[in-house]
Computed example of a mutant assay.
Amino acid sequence: MSQATPQHIAFVGKEVNVMLGFRGELMRELAAKGHKVYAFAIDYDTSSELKIREMGFIPVRFSLNGYSANPFSDLLTLWQLYRAFKKHRISMSFCYFAKPAIFGTLAAWAARVPQRIAKIEGLGRPFTEGKHGLTVKMRVIKKVQCWLFRLALPRSTALIVLNQDDKKDLKEQCKVDMPNTVVLGGIGVCLEQFKCSPVPVTPLTFVFVGRLLNEKGIRYFLDVAERVKAKHPEALFKVVGGATTAHGVSLPELKQYVKRGVIDYVGHVDNVVPYIESSSVFVLPSYYREGLPRSTQEALAIGRPVITTDGPGCKDTVEHGVNGYRVPRHDTNALENAVLNMVNHPDKLQSMGYASRAMAEQRFNVRDVNRRLLNVLNL
């Protein structure tokens, strides 16, 4: 494919805001090079369509049914994408997250799209083991998803994963044989947007930012916050993210922690920067099958020490003892000890924060990441 020839490029994901937040820089760069960029998403409304058009992209709606195992729903998704790829004469598909990567790649292959990029940003809930392993339902879903990976991913022209564990598990657990696999690392952040600032230590504040899902470790964070507050009432704990009723912590539960003075609950915000800047330490006790958490990359860029787990993706964001601490998944005692270490040694936090920023500059600069992506895309 000639680098000089303008391409019709389809970005196929889920939510519009996630696409713009995580893929926007790359999409703008491609549009600036003269390529026609199509933004495929499932939640368009009049406002978001207008926003996409103002940015120079072309919005395309399609339907996708989350973790549903309904074959008719999946076939509808496949048909919609196939027709859209044909209609818009797509010459390159860039499909990210598990289901879009599966059905987008299959549709692109059927539509004879020349370049088909599949990007797996973490293996997700079917590969996420709780304290007692996978439920029977999730074991079945995992088998189905592995079968779909085997069907779809070899039909991509390149597969991108964010960490070595995902590459290993796709090959060993799902039996996906993909010679053209690129381990990208994080998707990167804009270092100008997430600027480094000194670590505030008075009061010492620990922040959790993300979806308030059990797998993200929110319950472990709350448990440890309660323990540490009993010993060090001056320490503050902040939760930033929307409450949920499925697979996570509900608003009434959070209000009980607020009432007892354990946490300050902020809720969902569009801009996390002020909340990370006003915190001392970023905490993500996740056991979810992450790709490489974007929220942690943002905290690194702002220059915050990080406490996270030894799980896939998470472990790639911390050099233990240098810019933070890694703890075993599901181990609240180890998590508490890491938090107490920060409380008892606030003098270490600034040097840890600088080490975090250095890691962000070396490994998670979105411009460097996009340069690598453009090489993979041959654009």
Rank of each mutant, 00 (worst) to 15 (best):
V272T: 12
T309H: 14
A243M: 11
V283W: 12
Y265D: 07
G242R: 10
R219Y: 01
E226F: 00
Y265M: 07
Y220I: 03
P293K: 00
R304N: 04
R304C: 06
V240S: 03
A243Q: 09
A235K: 04
G291F: 03
E234Y: 14
L292Y: 03
E290I: 04
G242V: 05
G261F: 08
I276L: 15
G303W: 07
P252G: 07
K259V: 05
F221I: 02
K259F: 12
V283S: 06
T296H: 04
I302W: 14
I218R: 02
V239M: 13
A246P: 06
G267F: 09
L222P: 02
V283E: 07
P233L: 07
G291P: 01
G248P: 09
D264P: 06
V239N: 10
P285C: 01
I307D: 12
F282Y: 13
F237G: 06
V266K: 09
A246K: 09
F282D: 12
I307F: 13
K255P: 06
P285W: 01
Y287L: 02
Y257V: 04
Y287P: 02
A301W: 04
Y288R: 02
A230H: 15
E290W: 05
D223F: 05
V266S: 09
T296G: 11
H232V: 08
Y288C: 01
R219A: 00
R304L: 05
T245R: 13
G242P: 12
L254G: 06
I218V: 11
P305I: 05
Y288P: 00
I263Y: 03
Y288S: 00
R289H: 08
R227W: 04
A225V: 01
T309I: 09
Y265K: 05
K259Q: 13
P274Y: 03
V266G: 09
V224P: 07
D264E: 14
A299N: 04
Q256I: 06
S286T: 08
Q297E: 13
K255Q: 14
V228Q: 02
T245H: 14
L300S: 05
S280M: 03
K259A: 15
A299S: 11
V273E: 15
A225M: 00
